Amino acid sequence: MARLILLILIAIAAWIVWQKIKSSSPQNRRKQIFIACIAGLAAIVLVLALSGRLHWVGAVMVLALPVLGRLLAQLSRYLPWLMPLFEKHAKKRTEQASEHADAQQNHTPPHNTEGPPLTEYEARRILGVAANAEKDDIIGAHRKLIQKLHPDRGGNDYLASRVNAAKELLLSIL
């Protein structure tokens, strides 16, 4: 009985949405169809979640991602007019990566530490100090962290070297 009521409600909602889309202007139709599709997907997810079947949707989506990636690669090979779309996104990612690399080169630590070089922002996050922190604040934060993370006290070399590099970088900027 509950399924029958649910089907009747879905049919009524679909009819109301269809009438609204049909009576709208041509400029607004595309937008309303998009909103109706999103609302329909949200309703499907809600029904699946309430019925305990949502985990199957997640599994299908996880399995579909690699297949979609390969499918897009094949489509770009067989439909060359799609290539400019992929090239535009690839070019944008390359530009962002080069900007990030340039930003990291401007703030290298004073000595060669393990791991990638720190930026000033990362060093401040590691020590937990504000941008306007003074020398005493930096040294105090370093002292508290190094007591917890020192290899002789159960920490490891990597974490201790990152804390030391953060302190040296921030002190060299002051």
Rank of each mutant, 00 (worst) to 15 (best):
I173W: 02
K31T: 13
R29Q: 15
D152N: 11
I38H: 05
P80C: 09
R162M: 04
P116K: 15
I10V: 13
L85A: 12
G115I: 05
V57N: 02
P66K: 04
P80L: 08
V45Q: 09
R70H: 04
K31Y: 12
V47L: 15
M1C: 04
L127G: 07
A141L: 08
E95S: 09
I35M: 09
G154Q: 03
K22S: 14
A59F: 10
L68M: 12
F86P: 00
K91F: 00
P116V: 03
D136W: 02
D136A: 15
L174G: 06
L9P: 00
E87L: 12
A90K: 05
A42P: 03
A42V: 15
N164A: 15
V60M: 12
T108F: 06
F34P: 00
V62I: 11
V62T: 05
V47A: 08
P116L: 15
S98W: 02
E134P: 00
D137A: 15
G154F: 07
L71A: 15
M61C: 11
I16V: 13
R124M: 10
G115P: 06
G69P: 00
L174E: 07
L159R: 10
I139W: 01
L48R: 10
A73G: 05
R125T: 08
S98M: 09
Q74Y: 10
A130D: 14
A166L: 06
N28Y: 05
L54H: 07
H150Q: 05
Q27V: 11
Q147H: 10
F34T: 12
G58H: 04
L50F: 14
K20S: 08
E87T: 14
E87Y: 12
P66S: 02
V57P: 00
V57D: 00
